[in-house]
Amino acid sequence: MASLSFIIGIIGNIISILVFASPIKTFWWVVKKKSTENYKGVPYITTFLSTSLWTFYGIMNPDGLLVVTVNGAGAIFQLIYVVLFLVYAPKDKKVKTAKLVAILDVGFLGAVIALTRLAFHGTMRLTFVGIICAGLTIGMYASPLSVMRTVIKTKSVEYMPFLLSFFLFLNAGVWSAYALLVKDIYIGVPNAIGFILGSAQLILYLMYNNKKSAEAIEEEEEGGGSAHLVKGGIEMHSVEDNLNNRSLNKWKSLPKPNFSRQHSMQKIIKTLSLTPYELQSSWPLHESDIEEGNPDLP
Rank of each mutant, 00 (worst) to 15 (best):
V129G: 02
G194R: 03
I217T: 08
I113G: 03
A102G: 14
I17F: 13
L100Y: 02
W283D: 09
T47C: 09
L100K: 07
I234C: 01
W175E: 09
L163Y: 13
S260I: 13
V42A: 05
E287Y: 02
V82H: 04
L254Y: 13
T154I: 00
Y39A: 04
M60F: 05
V67T: 15
T55D: 05
P43K: 07
F20E: 04
A172D: 04
L65D: 12
N245S: 13
Q280C: 11
S50F: 02
S146C: 07
G233V: 00
Y159Q: 15
T271F: 11
L285W: 08
T55V: 04
K155A: 06
E219H: 07
T150W: 10
M265Y: 12
I11M: 12
Q201A: 09
T69F: 14
A98M: 13
Y159V: 14
L197D: 09
L274C: 04
N61D: 15
G72W: 08
V174Y: 06
H228K: 12
L243M: 14
T271M: 08
Q78P: 01
K211E: 09
T97C: 13
E221M: 10
F128N: 12
E220M: 07
W175C: 12
F166S: 13
F259Q: 12
L297E: 11
T275P: 05
K93R: 13
I24C: 10
V70G: 03
G135D: 07
S238C: 01
T97I: 07
L100T: 02
H228A: 15
R246I: 14
V151I: 12
F6G: 03
Q280E: 14
F108W: 09
I45Y: 02
A177R: 05
M140F: 11
I15K: 07
I203D: 00
I152W: 15
I269P: 01
N244C: 03
K33T: 13
S281K: 14
N13V: 12
V182K: 11
V147F: 11
K231L: 11
N294L: 10
F20H: 03
L126P: 01
E287T: 00
V230R: 13
L204V: 06
S199E: 01
A73L: 15
S16G: 14
A119S: 15
Y57G: 04
I234V: 08
R125M: 09
N209E: 00
E292P: 00
N191M: 09
T275W: 04
K153D: 15
I80T: 06
K211D: 05
D184H: 03
S281W: 11
N210R: 13
P284K: 12
Y141N: 11
Y57H: 00
L272S: 08
G293E: 05
L285C: 07
L197P: 07
N258T: 10
Y141R: 01
G107T: 08
A172E: 06
Y186S: 00
G224T: 03
T127M: 14
I7V: 15
S3V: 02
Y141E: 10
I187C: 02
E235W: 01
R246D: 11
S50I: 04
